[in-house]
Nucleic acid binder design. Structure first.
Length: 468
RNA sequence: GCCUCCUUAGCUCAGUUGGUUAGAGCACAUGACUGUUAAUCAUGGGGUCCUAGGUUCAAGUCCUAGAGGGGGCGCCA
């Protein structure tokens, strides 16, 4: 007898599926629900290829009780049968089963997922199983599509994918607390003459850390092969307990030679709009599901971002708008302060009601590498602020003048020797250049409508939690 | 790290002023129903009331400490 090749469930919901009607097919997947009576059972089977389930119709008389009793929520099945137009409402096609093999049972007493809605908080406690739910299937398929679209966007625009290192010796990149990487025996560390830990005995001969940003190495790429982007894991050892922070997250950092701050803003806006457009075009079913189940405004919000230009606003004007707004803030605004969440939300969600790019920030509250403006007070940094999420992008035109950069680092009492390799970009053939960092999971918050960043990554890392 | 709220059945939650044997819906089991759509209907089993102390004749309920979780804030992407 001829063996039938497996069909993925997504292929039963596209146009060419019509050719399969009336033919014997083989489907493999996990049971979402089973219902029926003593004559017939209906199984909703899902293989992860799409959010849609295929309905398997089982004539009870044709199968042994042993097989039937093992078909429970979560069990994995291999089903052969005839693809037919459905007799019932709710689906166009279904499979009339002729053979059912149970690959793996799921004990109903102990399998945590039920054929009912679960809270996101409960699912976080069983993060190893939550990808089997509709919600996480949808989110994680969208996550893949966004990752792919990022590479497509940059590749099509002539950017090169640049691999900044994960392990770094830069101990104060300025972006946050770092996780230390060591092979030393922490119970018995080697000591130097001063009685401190002797890192010359460590694996790399010096103290090393997980990267908090690939930017500095990215600038080496931009000042050599022109336009690069990084896309990799990033680590911050901050004790951050919010729905917008992770200890391990993914960041996209483009860096471009000969781009000024305006080119940088143009790129950031075009990039985000491309990704949102890509999601709407390629993740329709999953986004529709999330729209229906979690956030009725999701699709409207995504489409509105595509239509509108982002507001571009100097920091000084933002302070002006905030102080004249008549709005009561917990913390009063004044020039020179960093903006609080409440201020950002007012600008984005109330005053302008669309994404806002804030530029020309006071130099005291921004990083050392940002290009200094002629006013002596501000730098060419840019923050892209989104509704609900806040800062989704942070970037700047970089200071290309060697002397200005050194002076700023001295003001900040930085260890210049450790940045010698970085400063060589300004010593030799320095050029105007710009770049930014986009938080991948924050983008996903926006695209999926999820409200907690721990729900848009398969295995979230945050303080006191690394179980799965 | 700070502020705040929460923790009762597998899940989601009620539980009155501190008072007898702690309830419901869903899930699960059994039964009914020739086609269901998170099927429906009937019956049934199922509890370390987060943990440790304390107050009281009596604590799920009040007090103290701790653990875990949610939301807000800070750090930032």
């Amino acid at each position: 007898m001829e063996t039938i090749r497996r069909t993925e469930i997504k292929d039963l919901f596209c146009d060419k599926a019509k050719e399969l009607v009336g033919k014997a097919i083989k489907i493999k997947g996990w049971v979402r629900t089973k219902r029926g009576n003593k004559n017939v059972a209906f199984i909703a089977l899902n293989d992860g290829s799409t959010i849609k389930n295929i309905q398997i119709v089982v004539d009870i008389a044709l199968f042994s009780e042993d097989v039937l009793k093992n078909i429970t929520t979560g069990a994995c099945l291999c089903v052969e049968g005839l693809l037919v137009e459905s007799m019932g409402k709710g689906q166009t096609v279904e499979v009339q089963a002729t053979q059912v093999e149970v690959y793996g049972i799921a004990d109903v007493e102990t399998y945590p997922l039920q054929k009912k809605g679960h809270t996101l908080e409960f699912l976080r406690e069983i993060a190893h199983l939550r990808p089997r739910t509709n919600t996480f299937g949808a989110v994680l398929r969208i996550r893949h599509n966004m990752a792919f679209a990022i590479h497509k966007y940059f590749n099509d625009k002539g950017f090169f994918y640049w691999h900044s290192p994960i392990v770094t010796a830069s101990d104060c990149e300025g972006a946050g607390e770092m996780f230390q990487v060591t092979t030393l025996d922490l119970e018995n560390t080697p000591k130097n003459e001063a009685g401190k830990i002797d890192y010359t005995k460590d694996f790399f001969g010096q103290s090393t850390y997980l990267t908090v940003s690939g930017q500095l190495e990215g600038e080496l790429g931009a000042t050599s092969i022109g336009k690069i982007y990084t896309f990799g894991p990033t680590f911050r050892a901050e004790n951050s307990n919010t729905p917008r922070h992770l200890a391990e997250f993914w960041m996209i950092e483009p860096e471009m030679a000969f781009y000024d701050i305006h080119d940088n803003m143009d790129l950031a806006e075009d990039f985000i709009k491309f990704l949102v457009r890509y999601a709407l075009d390629n993740c329709k079913d999953d986004i529709q599901f999330l729209n229906d189940m979690y956030d009725k405004e999701l699709i409207i919000r995504l489409e509105s971002v595509l239509k509108e230009d982002f507001i571009r606003l100097p920091y000084t004007e933002a302070i002006d708008i905030l102080s004249k707004s008549g709005q009561k803030f917990d913390i009063q605004v004044s020039w020179g302060m960093d903006l609080q969440s409440e201020h950002e939300r007012f600008l984005v969600e109330k005053h302008f009601n669309r994404p806002v790019i804030l530029i020309d920030w006071p130099k005291e509250i921004k990083s050392f590498y940002m290009k200094q403006n002629d006013d002596g007070k501000t730098v060419r940094g840019m923050d892209v602020l989104f509704p609900q999420i806040g800062e989704i992008i942070g970037g700047s035109e970089r200071e290309a003048d060697y002397n200005k950069l050194i002076k700023r680092m001295q003001e900040l009492d930085m260890n210049i020797d450790r940045y010698a390799w970085y400063l060589d970009t300004r010593r030799f053939g320095s050029c105007p250049h710009s770049g930014f960092g986009l938080g991948f999971e924050r983008l996903l918050l926006f695209v999926t409508g999820m409200s907690n960043i721990r729900d848009v990554i398969p295995f979230p890392r945050f303080p006191k939690n690394a179980t799965f």
